[in-house]
Design a protein around this nucleic acid. Structure first.
Length: 271
DNA sequence: AAAGACACCTGGGAGC
DNA sequence: TGCTCCCAGGTGTCTT
């Protein structure tokens, strides 16, 4: 469910309801997420004020004075703000109830997500090796180009590696490669600087646009009656196997790269 | 060091 | 209706 735009949209959506509020209680109904939920450590935050809701890559950080909760939504996780009177349903694993009566509720059917506790303000091990934020100045053209040299890995897998840059998921990897006219199988190190710079621009552009759109398409995420929303933007290739390319008369293909579906147009993305 | 395979888990849809 | 099989927006960890 969540690529970076949805995580950021979730962060923006929940923050105004809970930032500055005192955490009244935390309820963990299932500790079996990707890693066991450290209930006792989380409980120590009860009575503390949530100072900030941050984000690094696809991780969300709930900051308290003693440290922060580190959340990831995995493949199927979602966060909602609900009234404390709304009873929990299937896969609602964690509730954070605040003094204002609002509850931050995690739903995650597949339980690939996590909810950890990080003491103090050091970067957690999971965050230490992450690459730059795609929409920050740290993600530069020169960095992108230099990192690509000598890489034999398929460009699609390369741009999805969070050690290179965070936040490029399966959908937006496919979409940015289509816009750049680059074949997803092409080894990253064999792409010319000129074409890499085009790809660089599209990665930024598409993620930025998706975040903008996420604000409207995902508002349900934080509604009291909310169900997870989906991006309704027009995807050029993702999920369109067998359909006609919007830019030519060719048919969209789907190949496996690193066990992930990879949609592309064999004509528009010949090389 | 780098690339690839595998692991974790549930639900929905296709096909029989 | 119900079974089996395949697929899904992620990513840490283990194996070559």
């Amino acid at each position: 469910m969540p690529e970076l735009p949805e995580v950021e949209t979730s962060r923006r959506g929940i923050s105004p309801h809970i930032k500055g509020q005192k955490l009244k209680s935390i309820t963990v109904r299932n500790i079996k997420l990707r890693w066991p939920v450290p209930v006792a450590a989380l409980k120590q935050c009860e009575g503390e004020v949530l100072n900030d809701v941050g984000r690094r890559g696809k991780y969300i950080q709930l900051r308290f004075s003693t440290g922060y909760m580190l959340l990831h939504l995995g493949m199927s996780g979602s966060l909602r703000i609900v009234d404390k009177s709304l009873s929990a349903e299937k896969h609602d694993h964690i509730d954070c109830e605040f003094d204002n009566g609002k509850v931050l509720r995690l739903n995650d059917p597949r339980r690939f997500g996590c909810w950890l506790w990080v003491e103090g303000f050091e970067e957690h091990k999971l965050l230490q090796k992450l690459g730059p934020e795609p929409l920050s100045g740290n993600f530069s053209e020169e960095y992108f180009y230099q990192a690509s040299r000598g890489k034999k890995q398929a460009v699609k897998q390369w741009i999805m590696d969070s050690h290179l840059v965070v936040g490029v998921g399966n959908i937006y990897a496919a979409e940015s490669l289509f816009k750049a006219g680059i074949n997803p199988k092409k080894p990253a190190g064999k792409i010319s600087k000129k074409r890499l710079m085009i790809l660089f621009s599209y990665i930024k552009e598409i993620l930025a646009a998706a975040i903008e759109q996420g604000g409207t398409t995902l508002k349900d995420f934080v509604g009291s009656d909310g169900k997870p929303g989906y991006f309704k933007q027009e995807l050029m290739v993702y999920g369109r196997e067998g359909e006609q390319c919007y830019r030519c008369d060719s048919t969209i293909k789907n190949i496996k790269l690193g066990q992930r579906s990879s949609f592309y147009c064999p004509k528009c993305q010949k090389n």
